[in-house]
Amino acid sequence: MTTAEPSGNARTACLRGAAVRAAIREALGMPGVVLFASYLGFGSLARETGFGLGAGLVSTATGWALPGQMALVELWSIGASLVAIGLAVALTNTRLLPMVVTLLPLLRGSAPDRPVPRWWLYALAHVIAVTTWANAMRRLPELPAQSRPAWFAAYGATLFAVTLAGTAGGFFLAGVVPKPVTLGLVFLNPIYFLMLFAVDLKQRARVLALAFGLVTGPLLHLVAPTYGLLITGVAAGTLAFVLDALWSRRGGA
């Protein structure tokens, strides 16, 4: 069965083609629309802060996770040091690591005839972020193992293109529309994440981190503009983590 019969190969290719088409169709639905809109915000932020189109596109292509990109542009615009920027982006994006760890077993799948090459996994990992991770975790188990890498590659590549288009679109839009609308586009960044927070209020530790962060962020900004964000993350995040652990121990929940 494991020998590659022509008919088996043809069937696999057919499955892969169907998976690719399905992935592109799904990516261009709601996930694409929402990501495009949020990257319009990032593109206009890149223009209005003077970060630039080229740098904005490179940030989207290499970062491919909006929270870290926002931290980069915002901290850069207030003249924060390289160390402060690097640490803030690292702290924001280390959350991608467990996403990669949980998604990878699904991608590696169990296709004994053709194992997924290792470099392919390293490439696919680059397009693991909140949207792709959440949808792939839901979708991949429904697909046959041999067509999963194809599905995810097509899904990720489509959304990758969408975010680049959104970044460029936001940059140009911000230069064309009246000033109040440009400000509205820049305002997309914080408002988008505020709503994502509201969708995801199931874990107590996260709710606590959110509440402490919302209060501490503005206050520490007044005291220490460039390192305030880092201190907010570490202090408010650690407090939330510890309180949640204590709570669990006491309540046994």
Partner: peptide, 22 residues
């Protein structure tokens, strides 16, 4: 996860309450 959440929440609140840019 908690640190990333708190940091992002802090950034979002800061952008709304004390925006530095446009």
């Amino acid at each position: 996860g908690c640190v990333a959440y708190a940091l992002l929440a802090g950034l979002v609140a800061r952008m709304i309450v004390f925006p530095v840019g446009p």
